[in-house]
Amino acid sequence: MFRRRGRTNLIPNYIILLLLVCFALGPILVPLFNSLKTPQELGTNPIGLPRAVHMENYVNAWVQGEFATTLTNSLIYVVFTVAGVLLLGGMAAYSLARLDPPGGNLYLVYMLTLSTLPFWLYVIPLFIMWRNLGLLNTRAGLIIMYVAFNSPFAIFLLRSFFMSLSRDFEDAARVDGANEWQVMTRVVIPIMWPAFLTVGLVVALGVWSEFQAALIFLQKDELLPVTTSYYNFTQRFGRDWSLTSAGAVMMTVPVLALFLLLQRRFVTGLTQGGLKM
């Protein structure tokens, strides 16, 4: 833990930090304000406070964006993808960090190489395969893809978390006669859960804002995720920025709430839970 040193004058720190806080949060006010304006007002007053509050934008955006459907879908995609990534990626990361598989380094290079393949290179063959496997237009098909896309980063991150963790607890468990599965589930995961939380949150955010694969692999309205609601405010030759802003707020609120709920754990978590050295 970083030691406090009371003597240092922290006022310059705070000034810089507060300026940066304005930089980070200020722009977020823009969609918030704009979501309350009419398109006509937006055309002449796109940043400032609304002259009159038009809450009906939210109602219209909710209906036109079909948020009831898309929010539910995104929730499903996020939950299952995070679970899949943490389970499968966590197992792989644990093995790489702890079990010293022969060729482990080579495997890391392989994973790295994988993450350099651009989506647009393999999307057509993948699409053809998904169609043949009957995975097109299914939730499972999309979730499987998301797990695959997100796991290289997760494996790397989890692996380095595992590596930074002292082996003492595990060794103690092994001495007590636990097998590797028991060591992982009973010792490592309880200690590691803040790391899982971190990775889980990163993956959740990634899935929440994904739209390219979803737009291509899903062709049924009832399966589309929340980001595609954003496109529901585009017409052939234009976009309704009032509704877009209201939609933007609505697609942000759930993740923001989740983050604010977990952030204490997320941000401080790593220093608790036995990770102190």
Binding site: V21, L25, I28, S209, F211, T252, V255, L256, F259, Q263
Partner: peptide, 16 residues
Amino acid sequence: AFFVPYVLPSVVVASI
């Protein structure tokens, strides 16, 4: 506060 922008979906960040 610093982390909040990271939470926003890319389509939202871009439109902001």
